[in-house]
Amino acid sequence: MIERYTREEMGEIWTSENRFNAWLEVEILACEAWSELGVIPKEDVKKLRENASFNIDRIFEIEQETRHDVVAFTRAVSESLGDEKKWVHYGLTSTDVVDTALSYLLKQANVLIRRDIVNFIKILKEKAIEHKNTVMMGRTHGVHAEPTTFGLKMALWYEEMKRNLERFDAAAKVIETGKMSGAVGTYANIDPYVEEYVCEKLGLQAAPVSTQTLQRDRHAQYMSTLALVATRLKNSQRKSVDCKKQKPVKSKNFLQKVKKALQQCRINVIQSVQRI
């Protein structure tokens, strides 16, 4: 996303550094799980936890040769370690790390988005109460129908955003899921316990069944929900614009006469305040 529309707190979640940190955490947790299974010695895991690190420029440098970002990453991490480096990425397939870490990043993003939706709902509720009896024209087909109140319009929107919050929570639950099931989802080279352990530590659910990837219906549901939230922010401003627009219309038929009469009122109902 361009900088203009990036708020710092969300931008920080999607930096290369934070993404590689998430990858590293998944890699180390996987080693911890293998250690609990008796595969990796405890002292090696201790060293991995304490010393494993990466230099971003070095990762990009290696990627120039490998043309594979996960391989570049694991090699860069290995350069920060001694002999225990042999355990980095042990039994894993790239997407075990990438998909699980992606869900972990989305989980971080969801904390912010959820907070924002809750805050917006609170504002709508305040506006609804404040303008409960602020009478205004209700319109159908763009034309005066019967009186209503501005508070009712706000209450309608408040209810819709509450539904969007429910949708968001459902979509967040579906996307906050990890997988460590190997190349085709059969756990051929990885003990299912590793997935269980890593996901639990990251606060993710473990996908009951997966392939090399998490299934993308999860991401589609998530994006649908974001699109619905965004759409409602878009649609609601129609009211403010419609209520103040004063476009001249040539009177040709009755409906146009009605519109013209409305437009002649030249009344700004709602001022949508500019905030840059």
């Binding site: 529309y5 708020r7 969300m10 999607w14 993003a109 988005i113 965004a230």
Partner: peptide, 8 residues
Amino acid sequence: TIAVNYML
């Protein structure tokens, strides 16, 4: 996620 955070 950045867009929706900004929009909200």
